[in-house]
């Protein structure tokens, strides 16, 4: 009896494994064709001088050319500056807003959540078109007019190299916090009430509660948002491409944009592939460092 049961069980598992493979078949084919193969291919292309009919192997030349290229380092520098200016500020803003929303009634919470999330629903192209006009360099431009109330003179926001980067950063501050606010809120609601009660018995103030309870409890969330934020920021391409085109004087050329230009403007596929792999390496390294130094007490 037991043996029969065992046999049928085995047969069932065997039979099911066929279904297993069938169910993942399409996903695997898509993955192999459009992710795995391109990654392998990127490695190969990065060692080649690409030509439509038969590429030539050039060894490490693409990598060496990139490392000797001042523009490449400038774009890396720009990307790092952009990341430092956007990600921590956006995290802090989202955290503060989430803390402020928590005491409100559920209905109000939902309204604010929806409002803050709204820019994330609009397409990046639409937002870039709008911001382009907000930054209109004429005296009649919206931002210039608002600031003239405070006695500031006209600024050519996107056209001068001292303000172009800041303009992209400001845009990021005001249009990409929705997701992190909602994630922070969900995490805040997950904190056990008893912690607060205990703290209250000890006479802890609001600030102390935030510092000793909320911030430690939200550490995994912060780490998650930080890592994903940095990864996203390092790949940033669209806003720079649509708003400034990397200018003026390459003040807003980020790695993502440089790779795009090399690939689809100059058709230097080899160099673009080499640079994209360097970028992947940098991102992996930074993510690793973040997990190593910030993730010590975080459990997954």
């Amino acid at each position: 009896m037991a043996q029969i049961a065992k046999q049928t069980k085995r047969r069932r598992i065997k039979g099911d494994s066929g279904y297993g493979y069938a169910f993942i078949a399409v996903a695997l084919v898509v993955f192999a064709m459009f992710t795995a193969y391109p990654v392998v291919s990127a490695f190969i292309i990065s060692f080649q001088q690409y030509k439509p009919l038969g590429s030539e192997y050039v060894g490490l030349e693409n990598y060496i050319a990139s490392f000797n290229d001042k523009l490449f380092w400038k774009s890396v520098y720009n990307t790092i500056i952009y990341t430092i200016l956007t990600v921590p500020v956006a995290l802090f803003l989202s955290f503060a807003v989430a803390i402020l929303i928590i005491p409100l009634r559920k209905k109000l919470q939902n309204i604010f959540k929806a409002v803050y999330y709204l820019p994330a629903v609009a397409s990046g192209v639409a937002l870039s078109v709008v911001w382009l006009w907000i930054y209109d360099p004429m005296a009649s431009g919206i931002l210039n007019r608002m600031l003239s109330v405070f006695g500031m003179s006209n600024t050519n926001w996107l056209g001068s190299s001292s303000t172009a980067m800041f303009s992209l950063v400001l845009m990021a501050w005001l249009s990409s916090h929705g997701t992190s606010i909602i994630i922070y809120l969900a995490a805040l609601l997950g904190i056990d009430e008893s912690y607060y009660e205990a703290a209250e018995l000890d006479g802890a103030s609001f600030i102390k509660k935030v510092w000793y309870i909320v911030i430690p409890c939200l550490k995994p969330t912060t780490l998650f948002l930080l890592v994903t934020g940095v990864i996203g920021s390092f790949q940033v391409f669209q806003n720079a491409y649509l708003m400034t085109g990397g200018g003026p004087d390459n003040a807003t050329t980020m790695v993502g944009l440089l790779i795009f230009n090399n690939a689809f403007k100059y058709f230097e596929f080899g160099e673009a592939a080499a640079q994209s792999l360097v970028l992947a390496f940098i991102i992996a390294l930074i993510s690793f460092i973040q997990f190593k130094y910030l993730g010590k007490e975080v459990e997954y």
């Binding site: 391109p38 291919s41 292309i45 439509p52 690939a263 992947a280 991102i283």
Partner: peptide, 22 residues
């Protein structure tokens, strides 16, 4: 599959373009 999510899209864009277009 999970590891592949970490790869930035810049890595795959050139080969993908060549694959689709050429």
């Amino acid at each position: 599959l999970l590891v592949s999510m970490m790869i930035p899209y810049q890595v795959t864009q050139v080969p993908l373009y060549i694959l689709i277009v050429n």
